[in-house]
């Protein structure tokens, strides 16, 4: 067992982990942050996407021990001061979710996409979300949700 310290959603945590402990299990089991989900186990579905030091990563394919000293953001940390993130708002407004299981990972992936490409075309959104599977929505409304968020962020930035 090894002791690691990570800052998750702004809070520092020090915990002991086995080297093999997957980040997703660490977040879910040890920190009780169950918004990050496990869908495929093999890094295709993206239900487990979180941000490590600002980059989107599949937490089922990352060891917790590798994150010693890292800053992590999960879906629980996306809303600020009770205000939904524009992506959360977009998914709600545009019916970008049904069962909701893929949604946290999808939103975290989309957040990284918008960081890299603040004004993506629909096609760029579709390719940017290739690491995330949704079995419910057919992606149509997810594309609309990300578009909504991009527009909102860009409008605020322009003001």
């Amino acid at each position: 067992m090894t002791t690691i310290t990570v800052t998750v959603n702004g809070t520092p945590y020090t915990r002991t982990v086995e080297p093999r402990t997957l980040l997703v299990h660490f977040l879910r089991e040890q920190l009780n942050l169950t918004g990050t989900h496990i869908g495929c186990d093999t890094s295709q579905c993206g239900a487990c996407v979180v941000h490590i030091n600002g980059e989107s990563v599949k937490s089922c394919t990352t060891l917790a021990i590798q994150c010693d000293g890292a800053t992590i953001t999960t879906i629980e940390g996306l809303a600020q001061n009770g205000q939904l993130h524009p992506l959360q708002e977009g998914f709600w407004e545009k019916h970008g979710l049904q069962c909701g299981f893929c949604t946290p990972g999808m939103i975290m992936a989309a957040a990284d996409l918008l960081q890299q490409n603040p004004d993506p075309t629909d096609d760029e959104i579709r390719h940017g979300l290739e690491g995330n599977l949704c079995r419910c929505t057919g992606y149509e409304n997810i594309v609309r949700a990300v578009r909504y968020a991009a527009d909102k962020i860009n409008t605020v930035a322009a003001d």
Partner: peptide, 21 residues
Amino acid sequence: LKRREDPKLIQGQGQYLDDIK
């Protein structure tokens, strides 16, 4: 109408089976 189910699900506050301890 947008769905009343969504606020918790978009914030990672849904409770799925494996979330239960």
